[in-house]
Design a protein around this nucleic acid. Sequence first.
DNA 1: GTCTATAGCGGGATAGAC
DNA 2: GTCTATCCCGCTATAGAC
Lengths: 188, 188
Amino acid sequence: MNDSPRRKELIRLAAQLFVQEGFDRTTVRMLAQEMGIKSGSLFHHFRDKQEILAAVIEEGTQNALTLARAALDDAGSDPLSRLHVMARAHLDTLLTDRNAHVVALYEWRRLDDAARDHLTHLRDAYERLWNDVIDEAIEAGLVAGDRALVARFVLGALNWTVRWYDPDGPRSPEQLADELVNMLTRRS
Amino acid sequence: MNDSPRRKELIRLAAQLFVQEGFDRTTVRMLAQEMGIKSGSLFHHFRDKQEILAAVIEEGTQNALTLARAALDDAGSDPLSRLHVMARAHLDTLLTDRNAHVVALYEWRRLDDAARDHLTHLRDAYERLWNDVIDEAIEAGLVAGDRALVARFVLGALNWTVRWYDPDGPRSPEQLADELVNMLTRRS
DNA sequence: GTCTATAGCGGGATAGAC
DNA sequence: GTCTATCCCGCTATAGAC
């Protein structure tokens, strides 16, 4: 794969448009304009529109994975602390960056079969991190329920923030993450 | 508005396709074929494709609202019971019916401005029901946190089930709803 | 209320010059 | 690596016969 900074920048711009408009409604002409080139030139960098989507999603998932691993390394072994940093890292990739990871979550089903096959292991690796952290939290008595279900509910709550979060509102992504963890682990 | 059973049936079929393929990728030809007519005939029933989307979303939201109100009427005044029936009703419209309410949630932003204006009050009425139930739950000490945030997190967890729920899996929508409420209101 | 036929447009993608 | 020019296709929507 090509890893040039130029390509990285194009992927970043594509991610932004895919979030704003959705993959289907983003035309290659829109992408080209945002990149400052003509639509014909776009196909020098990518075989087709699908490949752009795959590149964005790979970038977004890889990034989330890297950030989560770094956060867990810093977090030590306390289950509550690990839950906190995972939630913060997740919302950071979704709400601060506001880019590739959102596309990975919301446009996954637009991938063709080949791309899905290639990217599934990446997504699974990220989900495994979450499952482990949830497991530890359940064992420590911080939260109750079935591991797989708790993970899906928590990720659902986090992923849905994309739909309503206002960056100009009163709360930072970090605060949001902390409030979710508090809701899960504390009684009033 | 036209309320004929014929129109209702067309809306039902459209909802199914919009869920399967997404609004943008559903063509009027696909819609017509599913309805057993030719694409030209479709425009005798709807002005344009947008109007079909608006009709589906109105149907889905109205239905969710009606179901939730009925459920709350049966639930009495116990806050935990009210939370349970709301979660069950919500997942029922999303996972059992698998239709119009999913479209309302996932294709909302594809509505044009006029349709959005017209439908906002319906959606708000439904969200108000949720906010009230969450308020009562917080006051009763069942769950901790800011009202608006808790509501959004809970709805996020529920809405995201559409992405992973397997109707052939081990759990019914009702069980799912109950497990979520348990996670929120109990410690292990 | 449904049909056939088609207008009119905008989409993804290609070719070849520079 | 970018340009211009353009092909070809499928989409939404319309017109008029039945």
